[in-house]
Amino acid sequence: MKRIITLVVNGEQREVAVEPDLTLLEVLREDLGLTGTKKACNQGECGACTVLLDGKPVSSCLVLAVRAHGKAVVTVEGLAENGRLHPLQEAFVTYGAVQCGFCTPGVLLVAKALLDTNPHPTAQEIEQAIAGNICRCTGYVKIIEAITAVAQNQNI
């Protein structure tokens, strides 16, 4: 049986009628058209589907959409504001932290959550924060560099 849930997605209130067996990932991609959130393993093992749920990074493929009712969801589409890239987005482009781009949305959100709570993380803290996000293209080197640059407020 469908039920109506209310989500605050990227600052905007959205109502969706969902079956209980839908994941938040499926609702974001299929009902709300927010395809920036990626499905890569669908089992919570890769981080590509990461969104911020009430500020915390979670694998949206393991969240029942009905359980996100009343919560704030931030997806990659919500990072840039007023046509301006978020500093992390800017740094990811500048430092070459993006290659194929499929893991990028998830990594960006994890990085945002990290810097929101810990503005000046060590390299090790960065590695640990993104330890649930798999990237096959970059070997993580430039991702770590980009996050470090933002944390150190370097000119990017």
Binding site: L34, T35, G36, T37, T75, V76, E77, L79, A80, L85, Q89, F92, V93, T94, G96, V98, G101, T104, P105, L108
Partner: peptide, 11 residues
């Protein structure tokens, strides 16, 4: 910087 970067970081 890559020309496909902005599209990829914004989803």
């Amino acid at each position: 910087p890559r020309i496909d970067g902005p599209e990829k970081v914004t989803g």
